[in-house]
Amino acid sequence: MIIENNAVFFNDLLIFRDEPSVEFTDFIKKAYKFLKIEYPKFFKMDNLSKLAFTGADIILRDITRDKEENNVALVLANRSSSADTDIKYQKSIENKSDYYPSPAVFVYTLPNICLGEISIKHKLYSENTFFIFDRYNEDYMANYSAYLIQSGKAEKVLCGWVEFLKGNYRLAFYLYI
């Protein structure tokens, strides 16, 4: 499951594509509509959460549909943490004559908020951890996921990379079972 360059791939098949020149905010809105996600809270999310949420929904929708609860652990990582929203939030407190810190922005200044968003939608009462690396460290991520399954702490693990900074983004998710 990959989302990059305004294209969505699932099991190596292209399922949605938009022009490369389209900005992320427009692209992800079109992808949301195309995928029939139908979840109004989506529009309150920051860009990192929108990206992670969309990727997770494609993988999880058939697994979690109609279930009261699910034990799918979330193990995600990126490079820039929540820097995209951090920069936006910092601008709101930079100018003392225009000082306007917003709780709705501040809450997204943590990278793991996207884990909460995915957990709420898919009723994942499950293990979740957010890691930061320069680039995807498959050895660390795969071993941590394997621990969760082998120890019985999770039935499945949604593991992967979700990076967003200043319009540049990449998502690559894997499901371990």
Binding site: E69, L74, P103, V107, I113, L115, G116, E117, S119, I120, H122, K123, L124, Y125, S126, E127, N128, T129, K153
Partner: peptide, 11 residues
Amino acid sequence: DGAINDANHIS
């Protein structure tokens, strides 16, 4: 150890 989400609210 256990580290489990509420699946309830983000803030």
